[in-house]
């Protein structure tokens, strides 16, 4: 095993990427900087678990995504990214929140969509973020998460099913 690099090396090389990713997920500069610090602390302590045959970029990318999703779930903070994901849900899974194809949602609806997303299991939500927000292809998601392309497709279907179930529980009409 190679010796772990220093914190300065990691931060100087991958810090901008992590900060940009956290900013895009959280939508808040200060929260993104805090998240970046926390992410690097986690990465540095977990460097031994890093697989040498995988790319550090993808590893950090995924760690950042999961960390930000956890922050959003715990803090219930407003996130433009999740709003975007919610609107995607409206277009794909839920009905009754669109009027004439207009996908803009109001505050109440936004809160409802966030509640729906919070009830979806975290692995499925992560896959949905990669697919709908980051616009990654199935192949890229498969490489990123270490699963097969077929599994990626199946998990997207499961994501919609889980969202539909959650919407039904919350009284939101589902398609």
């Amino acid at each position: 095993m190679t010796p772990p690099p220093s914190v300065e090396e990691l931060y100087s090389q991958y810090g901008p990427m992590v900060l940009r990713r956290a900013r895009a997920m959280l939508g808040d500069e200060q929260a993104a900087r805090d998240a970046t610090q926390e992410i690097f602390l986690k990465v540095f302590s977990a460097w031994a678990a890093f697989r040498a045959d995988s790319s550090p970029v993808t590893w950090l990318y995924r760690a950042t995504t999961n960390h930000c999703l956890n922050l959003l779930r715990n803090g219930a903070r407003h996130s433009a990214a999740l709003d975007l994901l919610g609107r995607t849900l409206v277009g794909h899974t839920l009905v009754g929140h669109t009027a004439g194809g207009h996908t803009s949602v109001g505050l109440d609806e936004r809160l409802t969509l966030r509640a729906v997303l919070d009830r979806v299991p975290a692995p499925l939500r992560e896959i949905a973020v990669y697919y709908y927000l980051d616009q990654l292809s199935h192949d890229e998601i498969a490489k990123l998460t270490g699963v097969s392309r077929r599994t990626v497709g199946n998990r997207l279907v499961e994501f919609h099913a889980a969202a539909r179930d959650a919407a039904a529980e919350l009284g939101v009409a589902a398609r």
């Binding site: 970029v57 990318y61 975007l84 996908t103 616009q135 990654l136 890229e140």
Partner: peptide, 26 residues
């Protein structure tokens, strides 16, 4: 969102791929 969907459908590169290129991986 529609613009984002079109980005993948048109074969555009993702931010992750650009990050990997800029960080010297690919």
């Amino acid at each position: 969102m529609s613009a984002a969907l079109a980005r993948r459908d048109e074969g555009c590169a993702s931010d992750l791929a650009m990050d990997r290129w800029l960080l010297g991986e690919i």
